[in-house]
Design a protein around this nucleic acid. Structure first.
Lengths: 209, 209
DNA sequence: CAGTAAATACCTAAATCTAGGTATTTCATT
DNA sequence: AATGAAATACCTAGATTTAGGTATTTACTG
């Protein structure tokens, strides 16, 4: 019997996954959470074999949660559920030591297979994920290091994505436009993107919007 | 007995929803599709009471599918399943005549309630959706009309979102930078967004990336 | 207490985007 | 053959972003 804990910010997905496994003998859902913070709290008292984790979440995203759990020295296997097949993320995830990754457009069968594989000490990456990964493996290696935006930076990313100009943001936050400029520059550097478009794209991929 | 057809590009969501309703007496899933094109084909022979439809899909998105079905004069109720609570979309959807809209972070209970409401001739919008809608209802009304980008425009939107500048795009497509400029302007006008950031956001919401 | 991360602010020059136009060619449809 | 949409191209002025810096204050952490 494999004991699973599901973390996903969409209740429908949690309910769905629960229902899928309700009819599967060897797998049992022992709990779920709608975000990273809730997951951490609940995992204090629960100890699943496999953690089924969504990447794109508000509050604390999947990667942060993985880090926190590793930091606590938890011995559990992690299977990532992701929307976008983004090599940037996948690389980061592997670096963080997760055991597998399936796209949300995978089917029930794949999901069950991935979970058993992982529970038996294996690894599982959807074909598509693996392929995209290989393609981009030779590219910028330093991009792997942790991209962590500060609270203020996240705030500014959101405002930019919502079409506010530097001046508007400055006024809204009651700070100098120069400061907003500086933040924007820092963000672009941190994310390794080229311009505003990349920044907005990131905001989406990261689930900030 | 309410007969449902599910359209969502994520197999996990389809499987999940199927499982959820497997244990609900009055609701039955009679079919599903992973994209608009497949849905249209399958709906030629199927006639569900309610269509459960994801907005963000590749190939043919939810709105396009709704239009096509209305054009065919199909008599069916449509419940939208959406990720983002975007008033722009909601307005468009209402204009297209859909019966309801639930966010993907709604739970099983809400989903079931929404479906029965709609099947009984009612309408159902998640509280959050309704609220966001009201807030933005006084804003630009003309934005409701169909936003349809041409092939070339879509191409350019993608390149912009991928962080290419006007000059780079011009070179890549072997056209003048002036032309790219014109396209960008037209796109910004069509979408009713303010700047490049809005354009990239749109690309994501529309599922272009 | 020393060190560091975060947030703040300033400066300049160059690149890029935005807004307001006008105008021609191509292609498909009526 | 005419209409209209799509794609193309050009022009100018002003706004905004980008790249390269430097520097101060605050707050937490070892």
């Amino acid at each position: 019997m494999i004991r699973i804990f599901v973390v996903d910010d969409h209740q429908v997905v949690i309910d769905g996954i629960s229902s899928i496994f309700a009819e599967v003998e060897e797998i049992k859902i022992i709990g779920s959470a709608l975000n990273g913070v809730e997951a951490l709290r609940k995992l204090e008292t629960e100890s699943p074999d496999v953690l089924l984790l969504d990447i794109n979440m508000p509050e604390m995203d999947g990667i942060q949660l993985v880090r926190e759990l590793k930091k606590q020295g938890r011995e559990l296997k992690i299977l990532i559920l992701t929307m976008h097949n983004n090599p940037q993320f996948t690389k980061q995830l592997i670096a963080e030591g997760v055991q597998g990754c399936v796209l949300k457009n995978a089917g029930k069968k794949d999901l069950i297979y991935a979970i058993s594989e992982i529970n038996n000490g294996g690894r599982y990456y959807t074909d598509a994920v693996e392929e995209t990964l290989k393609e981009s493996l030779d590219k910028t290696q330093e991009a792997i290091n942790q991209v962590q935006l500060t609270k203020r930076e996240v705030e500014i990313v959101k405002l930019i994505a919502l079409e506010h100009t530097t001046n508007e943001i400055a006024e809204k936050l009651s700070i100098s436009a120069y400061t907003v400029d500086t933040h924007r520059k820092n963000i672009i550097n941190k994310l390794g993107v080229k311009n505003l478009a990349g920044l907005v794209r990131f905001a989406f991929e990261k689930g900030l919007l």
